[in-house]
């Protein structure tokens, strides 16, 4: 561990550089770190992916089971997103049930996928009110170097795109699994873009040391059409309305760029 004085000095430097429009790692204020996506890395999962966002590393796996629909949505399959901040990913993560950070992370990713209708949940219904497919998306943070939300949202979507559903048929109320797989239909590609407010400036894709000094962050998820489907403000600071509108504009542009880079735009 570096001494606190060194940390303070570094934080001051990060903050001062940002006010001059520069960042300590050489990026511009609107630049993402390098994004790498690998899919199909866990054979036993129905879908899986690993995302590297600079040094931040997140894995996501999809498992599918038969289950019951929720009473208020009898015609829809069930989507469940969970996130684990695994202790091996950071000295600040501890074993135990998900804390508020893990829960918030999972719920923000969940809202992006759900509200953009990325998955047609009605197609996962087998027998209305009785039997549906249940999708479990489990996000596994492997290395924490900031901006877990964007990395996790990319990993979750990449894993869903990679997902193959086992073939099955219903015979007299009984479900029989048949050989072969069908890809899970994906209707939309929501992309989450997080901006941090440091020194009254907005910076895209904050890394860990920037997150430690930011006043607040805002995550904006947009869909293929450029519409906004989820927002989450976090941190103990605030944004002015003007900053929020600016963040929306940046997030829409960045999402288009990321979709193009990953081959998700048609």
């Amino acid at each position: 561990m570096t001494s606190t004085t060194v940390v303070r000095l570094k934080q001051q430097q990060i903050s001062q550089l940002i006010s001059k429009g520069k960042r300590l790692d050489g990026r511009g204020l609107r630049d993402y770190r390098e994004i790498r996506v690998e899919q199909g890395i866990i054979e036993k999962a129905e879908g899986s992916a690993r995302v590297l966002l600079g040094k931040t590393e997140v894995m996501a796996g999809v498992k599918i089971e038969f289950g019951q629909p929720f009473p208020d949505t009898p015609n829809e399959g069930v989507l469940t997103v969970n996130a684990e901040l695994v202790p091996l990913a950071s000295p600040t993560f501890e074993p135990g049930p998900p804390d508020e950070n893990a829960i918030e992370l999972a719920r923000v990713v969940d809202r992006g996928i759900r509200e953009s209708n990325a998955i047609d949940l009605e197609k996962l219904c087998i027998e209305p009110g009785k039997k549906v497919l249940v999708l479990f998306v489990d996000i596994y943070v492997l290395n924490h170097d900031g901006n877990l939300i964007d990395a996790s949202a990319l990993a979750a979507l990449a894993a869903l795109i990679n997902t193959k559903v086992f073939n099955y048929e219903v015979e007299g109320g009984e479900i029989k699994i048949k050989p072969g797989y069908t890809p899970l239909p994906i209707n939309n590609h929501p992309v989450a873009v997080t901006l941090a407010k440091i020194n009254d400036q907005l910076v895209v894709d904050p890394w860990l040391e920037e997150e430690q000094i930011m006043d607040a962050r805002i995550t904006i998820t947009t869909d293929n059409q450029g519409n906004i489907c989820a927002i989450q403000k976090g941190g103990g600071g605030y944004f002015t309305p003007k900053q929020v509108f600016e963040a929306i504009q940046i997030a829409r542009e960045k999402a288009v760029e990321i979709r193009r880079k990953l081959g998700w735009s048609k």
């Binding site: 805002i218 906004i228 489907c229 927002i231 403000k233 929020v244 504009q249």
Partner: peptide, 26 residues
């Protein structure tokens, strides 16, 4: 916070165009 023109909580789910979003925030 009206005196500071500061938004301290902002969440959204659903589907809004940027124009609708600006109208909603105001």
């Amino acid at each position: 916070m009206p005196n500071l023109d500061a938004i301290t909580l902002l969440q959204m789910d659903g589907n809004l165009t940027p124009e609708e979003f600006e109208k909603a925030v105001s």
